[in-house]
């Protein structure tokens, strides 16, 4: 889904929300986490990643040096 690489590791979105990197394991079309009770498809994982990214309100905001001085 991401690109043409042979493999992409997905991190558990629930553990990622706790700033913990835990690699999801695959079971058929779904993924599951061994550290918490998350299970879901890649689509679901990426939806939750997108939810996580909402915390970064300024993720797409450039703050120049002068703007930082004024901040």
């Amino acid at each position: 889904m991401v690109d043409d690489r042979k493999s992409v590791i997905l991190r558990c979105p629930v553990c990622f929300a706790r700033e913990n990197d835990v690699v999801l394991l695959r079971d058929g079309d779904d993924f599951y986490c061994v550290k918490c009770s998350f299970t879901g498809s890649e689509t679901r994982v990426r939806e939750l990643y997108a939810d996580q990214q909402k915390k970064y309100r300024w993720r797409q905001r450039r703050l120049t040096l002068d703007e930082q001085r004024a901040l």
Partner: peptide, 21 residues
């Protein structure tokens, strides 16, 4: 941290400017 948006990553430059400050 998933703090970039694909090839858009203004935070990277903001961080350099935090050092410049």
């Amino acid at each position: 941290a998933m703090a970039n948006a694909g090839a858009e990553n203004p935070y990277m430059f903001n961080l350099v400017d935090q050092q410049r400050l």
